[in-house]
Amino acid sequence: MKTMTTGRRRMRGAPWLAWAVVALVLLWAVAPGAFTGHDPIAGVPADKLRPPGAEHLFGTDAVGRDVFARVVHGSVHSLSGALVAVAVGLVAGTLLGLLAGAADGVADAAVMRLVDVLLSVPGLLLALTVIILLGPGTVNVAIAVGAGSVAAFARLARAEVVRVRRADYVEAAFGSGGRFPAVLWRHILPNSLGPVVALAALQFGAAILAISTLGFLGYGAEPPTPEWGLLIAEGRNYLATSWWLTTLPGAVVVAVVLAAGRISRSIGKDRP
């Protein structure tokens, strides 16, 4: 109670900066040509390893490709991968959670034990297992990352449904003669989805992180695709001389993930 209130108030403001970052990166993915005139794949050998400047915002790499152009063109891989990952986790996890929360008893216990099992294996190891199974590749990586977030969605969805189901207003809705589907649709779902949407935003950022990690380890897209993780991995060989090859693409990843987290928190707070 003490001293906290003012701090919270300050955090309240609309996260316009975060939305702006996400919007910019979305635009990069949709229309990369509007942001850079350089080719992300074909380099100009004469221009290799130039530090950042007016001509090359993020500098150039060892074969003379513009790093900024590669980051802009690479956004589509990270974003679409993250979307697929979140979709997998959201759909599978929320359905599992709803099932568990709505049908207590044996089904609930069974689903929650399954979630325990999923939680017991760290996300990256689960993703690597899926990659052994499906092989490397952008889509496979996305599915692998999504599989890792199923447990989190399932847990949250179940907790929300259980919380809302106990609410007086749900009992009052049954008391007003409501049938289960109507009460579920009118009262339980709208009141339990907010935190799930917030988690989806958070997982979007986490998925971008995980995808770039797997890309860095070499399980994502094949070179010369400008995937963000791969980009940073390629820059590792020039650490001593060309800092920009790794630092600047990484900073873009951090910015996007931070923005997703910030948006998630603002959604989580927006409760009536």
Binding site: G205, S212, I232, T246, T247, V253, V254, L258, G261
Partner: peptide, 15 residues
């Protein structure tokens, strides 16, 4: 903490 959680570990190592 939100910053820490948003940093790719491999990039942090390189940095």
């Amino acid at each position: 903490p939100s910053l820490f959680i948003s940093v790719p570990a491999f990039w942090l190592g390189i940095l």
